[in-house]
Amino acid sequence: MRLSRVLDPVVSLLRERYEGKWMLLAGLAIVLFFAAMAILAPYIAPYDPTQLSVPLEKALEPQPPSWDHPMGTNKIGYDMFSRILYGSRVVLYVVITASLFSLAVGVPLGLVSGYYSGKVDRILSIIMDSIYSFPGIILAIAIASVLGPSPSNAAIALAVVYVPTYYRMVRGQTLKLTQSVFVEALRSLGYPTRVILLRHILPNTAPVILVVFGLGAADAILTEAGLSFFGLTVTAPNPDWGFDLYNGLDDFRNGYWWTIFFPGLAIMLLALGFALIGEGLSERLALRLERE
């Protein structure tokens, strides 16, 4: 019963025809591909990502892609393919935890702020705007460097950065809905605020929240890469795309393109996947609004 309530809209969304649906499908394919990679990493990875994967004499120089090492090795002899696989675990963990956390904080605050307007709204808006006015990466670096390098701390830093995005969208929607006739009708029926907010306004903001989730996660992947580039997500020798990007900087100058190309490609593809999901959903949303 409960499960079908969640699954039915998803199934109908995938059955429907609309312009921009290909974006949603392509995005889902990419994200599911990386999710599968993350889950299956221990089974697919040919080597331990933090162990020497080549004979010692070859470990002194990065080895180009070959059958044994599809993405080559880095300058200390670790297998890049294995590192990319395991790195996806860190990236997805940080970005999804952070997005869920931002959502869990931003959505209720947005609901309350939009419904009550007045003083509560003004105070919350000022706080959120001041967070929002920082460039995301700078704020994330500041928080993460105070907390220290670890995936969970990186997630906290990113969560703080993306709270205002959810807050602003939900607040705007709530404000609009609160002034609508149907919400006034619910007040005239004597509904308590809790019921109006949770059972009526929240479901009407759900599509927007999904869009923000997709676009926000895409942005968060880039910010996460930035954090790990500065060594704030994992510590050596653990694998993480942004961190490997940093580790490969010198190699590129010496002609070893693969130690930086593959992590970069992974970051770009995954961000693209989430962005496509967000864009595809927003096309669908615009269509629905037009019909109503």
């Binding site: 609508s180 006739v181 149907f182 006034e184 009708a185 005239s188 004597g190 479901p203 009407n204």
Partner: peptide
């Protein structure tokens, strides 16, 4: 709120007075 069930309102615009979802 406890009195509200005893006094009800019907609106002009039936397209706007129901939750679309």
């Amino acid at each position: 709120r406890r009195l509200r069930p005893r006094m009800q309102m019907i609106y002009q615009d039936p397209y706007a007075s129901l939750n679309p979802r």
